[in-house]
């Protein structure tokens, strides 16, 4: 299983990459939406974990392009944002994000659990299900 981490902050990108690699996933990473789109076509990851607020192409625009491109349309996508506003979440869900996480509400361990849950390969699925109950 291959996971792509998209995050413009280099430190956070490294932290997420190392932590996710520790789960046995192959990890690739990109620093902005543009780089991520090129990499998504090339690397064909099973799941993309992406920040929303990024330079060049925002996470939302990236998601929109991913979903309308046949080669990348079925990749699972988890969006992370600092914004908790409902309209932002609605936008993410409308664009077809599998999960929409608010950074201040989830820690890195929650993110790891949610990745397992979305990929359906985890032992911690019950636990992860409690992290982000549907509104």
């Amino acid at each position: 299983m291959k996971i792509m981490v998209v995050e413009d902050d280099a430190a956070l990108r490294e932290i997420y990459s190392i932590r996710i690699a520790a789960e046995g996933y192959e990890v690739v990473s990109a620093g902005d939406g543009e780089e991520a789109l090129a990499m998504a076509v090339r690397e064909k990851p099973n799941l993309i974990l992406s920040d929303v607020m990024m330079p060049k192409i925002s996470g939302f625009d990236m998601l929109d392009i991913l979903r309308s491109t046949p080669e990348t349309a079925s990749i699972k996508v988890i969006m992370m944002t600092a914004l908790s506003a409902d309209d932002q979440r609605e936008r993410g869900e409308r664009l077809g994000a599998d999960r929409y996480l608010v950074k201040s509400q989830v820690g890195i361990e929650d993110v790891v659990n949610i990745i397992h849950e979305v990929l359906g390969d985890g032992a911690n699925q019950d636990q992860a299900a409690n992290v982000n109950p549907a509104q």
Partner: peptide
């Protein structure tokens, strides 16, 4: 967030 992240690693 990165200090917290590195410490958790």
């Amino acid at each position: 967030a990165s200090i917290e992240g590195y410490l958790s690693l």
